[in-house]
């Protein structure tokens, strides 16, 4: 039974909006810290959230090529987390 009043696209867009709200919640930790690692962790989670939001937008707006952006972000986000966490220890030893 599919309700006639909502379409699946609207559900995806609404979910994307809620994910953004959750992202704002998590952003509190990125500001509050107290250590750099805490901030990094929060931004890493935000990155995962971004990937999900982009995927939801791709489904919601029916534009499948948004997934390319999501794919690039998934990998770069990981690189950023590893680069900075290594940097905090070895101070540029990785770079």
């Amino acid at each position: 039974m599919i309700p006639s009043s909502v379409s699946i696209e609207e559900i995806f867009l609404l979910a994307a909006a809620l994910f953004v709200v959750l992202a704002i919640m998590m952003f509190y930790r990125a500001v509050a810290g107290p250590t750099t690692q805490d901030r990094l962790l929060a931004v890493n989670v935000l990155g995962t959230n971004t990937v999900v939001i982009l995927a939801l937008l791709a489904a919601g707006l029916d534009e499948p090529w948004f997934l390319d952006v999501a794919l690039i972000y998934a990998l770069l986000n990981f690189l950023m987390a590893v680069a900075i966490s290594k940097f905090t220890v070895e101070r540029g030893g990785v770079l």
Partner: peptide
């Protein structure tokens, strides 16, 4: 692409968490 994304998220997230926790331990 979505399945690939899922795969990457599952591989990279624990690794990033480990990297961050290890850097926290080392500092």
């Amino acid at each position: 692409y979505t399945v690939l994304l899922l795969f990457f998220v599952f591989i990279t997230n624990p690794t990033a968490a480990h990297a961050i926790a290890r850097s926290a331990a080392e500092t």
